[in-house]
């Protein structure tokens, strides 16, 4: 019974989202879609786009972005950017800066030095 109700609700929600997704452009295909078809075959359907937006927003919040800001940031992503970020914010390159790197390289060098692979520190 519950399952049936849920199915109905999901169906209704999907329909509603599709309707929201195409307010004015009944049969028109947007340029971004036209380009993405040119470039590659994959494309998210409208409902999936909505889910991706929600997913990315939730992930941003999970990574410490303020909820209001997360919603605004997601609203500014194009379809392609959304696909890029959906589900793998964790693994995307996150530019952080030259400051951290000095530490990392230093630790690597120190280990190599201690293990005896290199001995660059001797000259200092």
């Amino acid at each position: 019974m519950h399952a049936t109700l849920r199915t109905l609700f999901v169906g209704w929600l999907s329909a509603a989202l599709i309707l929201i997704g195409f307010p004015a452009h009944a049969g028109m295909i947007g340029t971004e879609s036209a380009l993405s078809v040119d470039a590659r075959a994959s494309h998210l359907a409208t409902v999936e786009q909505f889910m991706a937006r929600d997913e990315v927003r939730a992930q941003l919040e999970g990574f410490g972005v303020e909820p209001a800001m997360a919603a605004e940031r997601v609203a500014n992503l194009s379809d392609a950017e959304l696909q890029q970020m959906a589900f793998n914010i964790e693994s995307q390159p996150a530019g952080a800066g030259a400051l951290a790197v000095i530490g990392i390289v230093f630790v690597v060098l120190l280990i190599l030095e201690l293990v005896g692979v290199i001995n660059v520190f001797q000259s200092f």
Binding site: F63, L77, E81, A94, G95, A96, A100
Partner: peptide, 14 residues
Amino acid sequence: IPGREGTLQAEMIA
């Protein structure tokens, strides 16, 4: 993105 201690390319563009 505080949790990633960095900025993603997609958001630089956006």
